[in-house]
Computed example of a mutant assay.
Amino acid sequence: MSPTRRTTRRSLARRRLPSLAGVAVLVASASACSSEAADQWSRLAQPEPQTRQGNLMLDLWLGSWVAAFATFVVVFGLIVWSVLFHRRRKNSDQQLPPQVRYNLPIEMLYTLVPLVMVAVFFYFTARDETEIIKVSGTAPVKVKVEGYQWSWRFTTEAQGKTATVAGVPVDLSKQSTTNPQGPQLVLPVGTKVEFALESPDVIHSFWVPAFLFKQDVIPGVHNKFELDTLDKTGVFFGRCAELCGVDHSKMLFSVKLVPQAEFDQYMTTQSAAGGAQ
């Protein structure tokens, strides 16, 4: 092979290398996105739960969809069966198919089956709802959540120390997935946390999608709930889920789940600074 031909092939290889690298990055990104999309589909578009109660809610959600799909298959299958096998035949003098009025077994069947289905749904919903809204009063971390027009104030108490974080309506132009705006509530992982909700003005709603739970913040009503955080650190977005006024969309906040040691250091620093941020 001549030196000129070798040089030409090396030049082509160098020019193709960035393209091949780009294709490799694209394939890797597509695989990651595909894996993430598949994981989200397995939860039927729900976020990954960050609390024990969130897992209960997700199980109830998935179970409801399975039951609904099974009901759809049975009902639709019966409709198709009726259409195919009980349609009017050609060259037939029969005006109507055989009627089933006053057929006691069939009437009992389509009366009892829906009652059983509703009873099963009610049982699992009541069971999980009771567990989700249960407040034991023994949580080592307590958070007072105050929703006001149009931001939040979080007062955290743990180990005899207090930290308060208050916010103002956020600038939506600066909001991003990597730069959450608004006050940030810091909580430890693997810990039970009690929330007490209050509002001095109108109805708000405390919602963190990653918790798969929200509760209204109502003037004059002291709602409470508990969450058991999982051993997963990260920053998760929160917002008001109740239309509360002109700047409702600016009532954003975030929850940061950190290791216990980091949370202890945070509480010590905030307490020494007077409990305010």
Rank of each mutant, 00 (worst) to 15 (best):
E131M: 02
Q94T: 12
A70L: 15
S199L: 09
G160H: 08
R10T: 06
V25S: 13
S151V: 00
F263Y: 09
T125P: 01
A21Q: 14
A273I: 02
E48I: 07
E129W: 08
L187D: 09
V221C: 01
L252D: 12
E262N: 08
T4S: 10
F211T: 08
Q277L: 11
I218G: 08
G160C: 06
L12C: 13
G77P: 07
R52W: 08
A158F: 13
W81T: 01
Y148L: 08
V27T: 06
T178R: 06
A38K: 11
W41Y: 09
Q270H: 05
L84I: 14
Y102N: 11
P140C: 02
L12V: 13
D128F: 10
G182C: 08
M251Q: 15
V189M: 10
Q40R: 15
A272W: 01
R43D: 15
T269Q: 05
V186Y: 02
L60A: 01
L230W: 05
M1Q: 04
I132H: 11
K256W: 01
M1L: 06
K90Y: 15
K144R: 12
T164H: 09
V235E: 00
N223I: 07
Q53F: 02
G147W: 10
K250H: 15
F236W: 12
V235D: 00
V83A: 05
C33G: 11
R52C: 11
V217Q: 05
S205D: 06
S176Q: 03
R88L: 14
P114A: 01
W61C: 02
L172I: 14
V165I: 15
V170T: 15
K250D: 08
D59Y: 13
Y148S: 12
A273F: 03
T111Q: 05
V170E: 07
D216L: 04
S205V: 00
S29T: 05
M1I: 07
G274K: 05
S64C: 14
S254P: 00
G22Y: 12
E226V: 06
G234S: 03
C33Y: 12
A70W: 14
P209S: 13
T164W: 07
P188A: 05
P169G: 06
A38M: 11
L62C: 10
T229L: 11
T130N: 03
P105V: 13
S92D: 13
S11D: 07
V23C: 10
G22P: 08
T4P: 00
L197Q: 04
A68V: 10
L187T: 05
T4W: 09
Q50W: 07
L227T: 00
T138L: 01
S271Y: 09
G220L: 10
F206C: 05
L56Y: 07
A210R: 01
K214H: 12
R16G: 09
S2P: 06
Q159C: 09
Y102G: 02
F206I: 05
S2Q: 02
V186D: 05
V208S: 13
L243P: 00
Q181F: 03
